[in-house]
């Protein structure tokens, strides 16, 4: 038997011995992951929500996937059907792509990417879902789509030349984009009532777009710190809706359209 095969044999024996322990220890591992909180709780009027799941700790009755990839040009696609599911993806490297699709209630999805030229895409259909994307690096793109009520979407990008896009249909949902750096673009589109959209951009030459249509009692907030920034806010169905922009710095442009 070769040395490598001998090492394999030792590894397998270790795995076999550990298997029942791993199985028995799953509950603890899940509890630990569940206690991390969601990708961003409800934001107050003055800023985005902090870490924590506004929907409460997810139940362990659904599917659970934890995937890590390191390297470049990797792809990752997850489809989950059911309720109270959790999907966690961590990618380190550049030119990677991650896609998560969930249908059902009370699902949570997290994507974390470290590197440049990465793409992340999350789609949730159902209510009380939470989606979070964190990207560190430049030239990244993040897209989130949620349909239903009481959903939460958060995108946090650090670096330059990033693009974040969020689309929500339904009611009582929240969308948050945090971009630290310059030459970033944030786009939020919401249809329905009692929706909340928030964009925070720190840096220069950023662009923020918020569009809320077809409902009432919506709220759009946009904060830009730095110079040469641009914000656009459009609301239709303005009964009880609020559009609020705060720009600090010079040579900024803000546009609001309510009808």
């Amino acid at each position: 038997m070769s040395k490598k095969m001998l090492l394999n044999a030792v590894a397998v024996i270790a795995l076999l011995v550990a298997a029942p322990m791993i199985m028995a220890g799953d509950a603890a591992a899940q509890t630990s992951e569940a206690s991390r909180g969601g990708p961003g709780g409800p934001g107050g009027p003055g800023g985005p929500g902090g870490p924590g799941n506004g929907n409460g700790a997810p139940s362990m009755s659904g599917h659970k996937a934890y995937i890590t990839e390191s390297g470049n040009y990797n792809t990752n696609t997850q489809d989950q059907t059911g309720s109270k599911q959790t999907s966690t993806n961590v990618q380190s490297g550049s030119n990677n792509g991650a896609t998560t699709r969930q249908s059902g209630k009370e699902n949570t999805a997290y994507i974390t990417q470290r590197g440049n030229y990465n793409t992340a895409n999350q789609t949730q259909t159902g209510e009380s879902g939470a989606a979070g994307i964190t990207q560190g690096g430049s030239n990244n793109r993040a897209d989130q789509t949620q349909g239903g009520k009481d959903n939460t979407a958060t995108i946090d990008q650090g670096g330059n030349y990033n693009t974040a896009s969020q689309t929500q249909t339904g009611t009582d949902s929240e969308a948050t984009i945090l971009q630290g750096g310059s030459y970033n673009t944030g786009v939020q589109t919401q249809s329905g009532s009692d929706q909340y959209a928030y964009i925070l951009q720190s840096g220069n030459n950023n662009q923020g777009y918020q569009t809320q249509t077809g409902g009432s009692d919506n709220r759009a907030e946009l904060t830009q710190g730095g110079s040469f920034n641009t914000s656009y806010q459009t609301q239709s169905g303005v009964s009880g809706s609020v559009a609020w922009a705060n720009q600090s710095g010079s040579n900024n442009t803000s546009s609001q359209n309510q009808h």
Partner: peptide, 22 residues
């Protein structure tokens, strides 16, 4: 299942497809 999966991959050009269904 509710116990789920843990996947760790290192390298370039990797491809992951996961479907979790009722």
């Amino acid at each position: 299942g509710s116990l789920g999966m843990t996947v760790r991959m290192a390298g370039n050009g990797l491809d992951i497809k996961v479907m979790q269904l009722p």
